[in-house]
Design a protein around this nucleic acid. Structure first.
Lengths: 207, 207
DNA sequence: TGCAAACTTGCAGTGACTGCAAAACAATCC
DNA sequence: GGATTGTTTTGCAGTCACTGCAAGTTTGCA
């Protein structure tokens, strides 16, 4: 009784995790992040408070739905591009692919998260605080592609630029979601690519 | 009994704030950030726990010594440069000036902070979480210089790049402080200035 | 000296988060 | 099917960050 890689146990775990994430986002969007207690979230997902903390290290983490597999997955993507693709492009395209996938899988959750992040922008920053290992993975992948030694700044800076681009994009998206989030991240990364030394040309009516 | 701008009250407040900041950093460096309670910090600074929270909204904030005047001060600097200086340069030079000043005033504190941040890099990220208003100020200043509408991404992106540069620089500095922190921040900002699309040339023995 | 405003403090309370040990559960072996 | 073993869930007791409130204390000023 064991399908390739998906036991009853695994299925239950995935479902519990998803239920907790969903409950957190839903309740936070409904009544405001700090008017929701972990106790209420756990009740909504039909598990004990202690179980909540077996799945997520903090309420913050549950709200963002930090996926521990995202880091490795993106790193793999970065390395999978053919050799002639520049490290920057490999990184950019990997990030955009991840975002597109994520939005396709959980657009509804992100729309709710948006509401919460509009009230509490600091949560978006804090969300990146615990992803140091993932960032390290990405930086290593970029560094490997670029043929740079571990100690070089470039990979770390590029990854940091990615977070910054994502943060800015979400902020803009929260104010006006008529443009796809992926577009906005792409735009921000493009600016980082060409450099910030000169003010970009300002299109009327655009952004 | 009121010198221009520095009353007894003001002096006492500054001293209490400094004592709390100093106690936090010292104790955290000594025994590790989460083996120090606010109660101990308050005792060390000879005030009540409640008073600690009158000065700092959180333990995190006390560790970083978030200066509420830093934002306005930097914004002012940005706007003070003559008109022919580009927004990017104005921003870059303002940040570097602030860092230089800060290190000259409190180098010892930063050396201790470095120890703490090496153990808990996430604190550095979290430190920027509550500075949204300051970032807004800086972005507005940059936007004004650049003659861009409020809604444009460029200013926000530049400011975000600044945080990223600072974070990377501190991380590198923590590993090897033979180079001045200001230098490292400058280097990172320079890369952001010229763009990340191409891997920078790799100097042997350099970084 | 005396009043008003600003600061400090204690206290009681909420809520996030942790370690531990026991109970419930799923996979495996006979 | 039933015993065994490894995993997950749960309750519980405890710690600690942080908040609002209502005194108490200190400083600024007339």
């Amino acid at each position: 009784m064991n399908q390739p890689g998906e036991s009853l146990r695994d299925r239950k775990k995935r479902r519990t995790r998803a239920a907790l994430e969903r409950a957190t986002v839903r309740l936070a969007a409904e009544r405001g992040y700090d008017h929701v207690t972990v106790e209420e979230i756990a009740a909504e997902a039909d598990v004990s408070v202690r179980t909540f903390f077996n799945y997520f290290a903090s309420k913050d983490e549950a709200l963002i739905g930090a996926d521990p597999e995202a880091g490795p997955r993106i790193a793999e993507r970065i390395l999978a591009f053919p050799g002639e693709v520049s490290p920057f492009d490999a990184y950019r395209r990997s990030i955009l692919a991840e975002i597109t996938d994520e939005l396709n899988n959980a657009r509804d959750l992100w729309l709710l998260r948006k509401e919460v992040l509009m009230q509490r922008p600091d949560l978006l920053v804090r969300a990146f605080a615990n992803s140091a290992e993932s960032e390290q993975l990405l930086a290593n992948a970029v560094g490997q592609r670029a043929g740079l030694p571990e100690s070089h700044v470039y990979p770390r800076l590029l990854v940091a630029a990615g977070s910054a681009a994502f943060r800015c994009a979400v902020t803009r998206w929260a104010l006006d979601d008529s443009v796809a989030l992926g577009e906005l991240v792409g735009e921000a990364l493009a600016l980082f690519g060409t450099g910030l030394a000169h003010v970009p040309h300002h299109h009327e009516g655009g952004s």
